[in-house]
Each structure stands twice: as structure tokens, then as C-alpha cells.
Simulated assay, not measured.
Amino acid sequence: MLILASASPRRHELLTQAGLTFRAEAANLNEDLLPNEAAAAYVQRLAEEKAQAVWNAHRASDSSEDPLVVLGADTCVVVEGHILGKPADSADARRMLELLSGRTHAVLTGIAAITAKKTVRDLDITQVTFNVITDAEVGRYISSGEPLDKAGAYAIQGYAARWIPRIEGCYFNVVGLPIARTIALLAQAQLDTPVAEKV
């Protein structure tokens, strides 16, 4: 049994697109950045903590006939040293979009899978280039509501696609889940032989 430790509709859609059968369950955690925590460590820590929280809630249902696997993921945007999660409000969304305008930034997604035998994790990074966005465009975008629940205050698969001339890396990572890496990680998690945790 596979459980996605996330309420994200984008991650749900991507796993479904990849042909996986699963159920989704949000892990309600404090997602604050720790002091001096680097972006890569931050998303990997949260991915693992989300997976662990859901695993702990369902570990009693693990069985040899239907082994329990819990997948956690977390995404953030990094531009000029600033880590951008989901905006707190419209003003915060504007701040983020103004930071991204005319620059290249990194999108990092940490993924973690937990089974009875092991925990494995991985990280994907995609570089995304934005054109310059006018104040009027930023205002229209914020008023649409689309940026308010997205890391970095934008959705590459939505209206913001008009500002993105180039990416380097996995497109699906920017949406919220690097599919190829996730499939490989799930396969690694379900190997019968315990392995050292991937860093």
C-alpha cells in the first residue's frame, strides 16, 4: 500500500499520471526553516518528516501481503540566496514574484520513502528562468489566486508559463514532484535488502 503524505493536488495528479495506485493523506507539521538551514537540507528534512508522521499513524497496518510505503515530498524556490516557500498573503506573493522577475532561480524538491525496513531519500534541482514581469502583470496574477498556495508564488503549469522561456532540469520537479526520481526512489525503498540511507 502506497500513501502519499501530501494534500497537494499537483503531486496527486503526477503520481496518477505515472500510473501509481495510492491514497493521499496530509501530514500537518511545522514547516518553519531551522536556523542556518540550507535549502537542500530543508526540503529533504520536511519530506522525511512528512513521510515519518504518516508512517507512524499507519505502521500497524503494514503487512507482508501488502507492505506499507509512505512517500513524502517538499518543494521550495531559491533565488539569490532567498528560500521561498508558499506565500503568507498577497503582499508576500508580490515580494516573491518581484524577486523572481528577470532572474534564474532554482526549484528544489526533497523526496523520502519509508517502509518497515528502511528510509530512503533524494533531491532534485531544476533551474528556471523568468522574463521581466511588469507590476500590472504581477497584480493580475495575484488577483487570480493561483500563486497563493504555490512555492515561490507561481505555477509553471498555469498562467506563469508565459514568463518562463527556459528551464534546465526536470519540468515535473517544478510542478512539485520529479516523477522519474520518485519512481526510482520507490523501487529502492521496496527492495528486500536494507540499504544505507541515500544522502
Rank of each mutant, 00 (worst) to 15 (best):
K50N: 03
E197Q: 13
Q190W: 09
L186Q: 08
V69K: 09
T134I: 04
I142M: 00
L191G: 13
P147C: 05
Q157F: 06
L29G: 02
V174F: 11
M1H: 15
V77F: 02
L20Q: 09
N28C: 08
L20H: 07
G81Q: 01
S6P: 07
L99N: 05
L14Y: 10
S143A: 13
L33S: 09
Y171R: 14
D62L: 05
H12M: 10
V175A: 03
E49F: 11
P35R: 04
A88G: 02
R121Q: 13
A151M: 07
I3R: 04
L100A: 05
I183F: 06
L14Q: 12
L84R: 01
N131R: 14
A5G: 06
R45H: 12
L34E: 15
L15S: 13
V120I: 14
A39L: 02
E168W: 12
A38S: 13
G110L: 12
R166P: 06
P35I: 02
D32W: 00
Q190L: 15
A116R: 10
E31P: 03
Q188G: 05
A116W: 05
A91L: 11
G145L: 09
P165D: 09
S8H: 03
K150G: 07
W163N: 01
I114K: 06
L185V: 05
W55G: 10
K118W: 08
K118H: 11
T16G: 11
L29E: 01
E65K: 15
T126P: 09
T119P: 14
L71W: 03
D135M: 05
Y141M: 08
A41F: 11
I83E: 02
A60D: 13
A116S: 10
L71H: 06
V175W: 02
E65N: 12
G81M: 00
A40V: 08
S101H: 08
S63E: 10
T119A: 12
V195W: 05
R94F: 00
A112M: 04
A106C: 07
A187N: 15
V43E: 08
A151G: 07
T129M: 10
V69E: 09
R45G: 12
I156N: 08
A113P: 04
A73K: 10
A151W: 04
A73D: 11
L46I: 15
F22N: 06
V199D: 15
S144L: 07
A41E: 10
E49N: 14
F172P: 15
A73C: 12
L46S: 08
V70N: 06
Q188S: 13
R10K: 01
G145T: 09
S64W: 11
D149N: 10
P67M: 05
P147F: 05
L71K: 03
S144H: 08
K198W: 14
E49H: 15
A116N: 08
G152K: 02
A112C: 09
P178E: 07
E37D: 08
E197P: 13
A153D: 01
M1R: 13
I142E: 00
P9E: 00
A5I: 02
A93V: 03
A184V: 12
A113H: 03
Q127S: 14
L99T: 01
E168F: 15
T16D: 10
L14V: 15
V43Y: 08
E137V: 11
I183E: 06
R59G: 03
N28H: 12
Q17C: 14
Y141W: 10
G169Q: 14
K86C: 00
D124F: 05
I156A: 11
L34I: 15
E168C: 15
C76E: 01
